[in-house]
Nucleic acid binder design. Structure first.
Lengths: 221, 221
DNA sequence: TGACTAACGTACTAGTTCGTACATTAGCTG
DNA sequence: CAGCTAATGTACGAACTAGTACGTTAGTCA
């Protein structure tokens, strides 16, 4: 009997632990991002999977751990993207601008991730705290920023008093707000921050802002 | 019989519709901010009030409308703060910096409001859309920004191509992120963005950033 | 002062939702 | 190929939760 026949015999499904887990994570990511932690329904996640609720508890233990697993995978994706960052060959100004653009693009491309982070903040980052993986991730982007900043400061292009974590916060703020607060901002000010027609405008604005901050003359502290 | 005796007779409580509604709104604000919309419990809100759940439905109609009422009041507070903004007598640079500082201070002073806005964004701003009040609020801050920008651009201090709504978004991004993402940022990067010892640092950083952006030379579009 | 209504309280229900006990089977391994 | 275990499915329950039916009382006004 062929493998295809096997599948047919069991309704098209074969046992595949990794695949089942991945599918649960996919659907769970969508559901948590859609409705928040408490708004998400375990039954709904199960229903949209080719498996059953039983499997969620079998593999993840419970709703809390499932959400933690979703977060771990989501953060893993951005970490990978950051690791592929290759800006060392650029001059400091171009490198920072490129970094800002990559951050901008990643936020725009992953609104579900942004929502998950918002949700996790509502819950005081307790799942990150409970995760062994997420605690000691470290950020590849941060290392990149440190190197660019050092180069820029040494060459005198950048003002000397800027910290890498602060700069990361500054860039993230803009990218995050634009996606996360899209709805309230749109409702209150009548402007869609994620309007494709405005994409280049805001992308440039972010770069201009960061570079202006880094190259501006400031009163010494 | 004195008023005090009256109160004593009924367990210290007098009938006062306005007061009951205000108390429900106070507690509901805390509860929604604490746990999110779906995480919030109507029973919990009622329990922490001097009245009962029955009154929540009597005055507000339901959980959804209660949350909308909470949002309406929260936005009212920030609108009032913005209306008291008095920076017209300052030069454009000082005026923008003052505006940024006021925004910064307000975000820091009202973390519950920030959480409510995050929550409302998770739900696609549907309560704002459903609210008659919130639709046509308009932002006093936006008018102020428009005037300062016009003055700054006319005097040649500021670059000409900056829009008021965009600048508002820029300032809000930083202030919002610092409070809203405090927990995940702290857990991942080991830095508390709301640490009082760092307050002046970030407050200055925001002003520097905005002024640098507004006064920088840029390639024409 | 009597009666009318807004304001309030109690007790309950219908529906939901996380989680689990129990039963079954696919597929590997010796 | 026998048997063992990881993987899976079904059916159910206990607890929670938004919302309500019904009853009571305070305060005002004719």
């Amino acid at each position: 009997m062929t493998s295809v026949d096997e599948q047919a015999r069991h309704g098209g499904r074969i046992r595949d632990a990794a695949r089942t887990q991945a599918e649960i994570l996919d659907v769970a990511t969508q559901e948590f991002a859609r409705a928040g932690y408490d708004g998400a329904r375990v039954d709904e996640i199960a229903a949209r999977t080719r498996t059953t609720k039983r499997m969620i508890y079998y593999y993840f233990g419970g709703k809390e751990q499932l959400f933690t697993a979703v977060l771990e995978r989501a953060y893993g994706v951005i970490r990978e993207a950051e690791q592929q960052l290759d800006v060392e060959h650029l001059d400091p100004v171009a490198a920072i601008r490129r970094l800002a653009e990559v951050t901008f693009d990643h936020h725009e491309a992953h609104p579900d991730f942004i929502r998950l982070v918002s949700i996790e903040n509502i819950h005081g980052a307790e799942h990150i705290a409970a995760s062994e993986k997420l605690g000691k991730i470290g950020s590849p982007a941060l290392d990149v920023i440190r190197r660019i900043l050092a180069a820029g400061q040494e060459s005198g292009l950048f003002t000397a008093d800027v910290d890498a974590v602060d700069l990361h916060a500054m860039i993230s703020s803009f990218c995050f707000f634009r996606v996360a607060n899209r709805h309230t901002f749109g409702a209150l000010f009548g402007r869609d921050l994620v309007d494709p027609a405005q994409r280049e405008h805001y992308r440039t604005m972010l770069g201009d802002m960061v570079i202006a901050y880094l190259t501006a003359e400031r009163a010494a502290d």
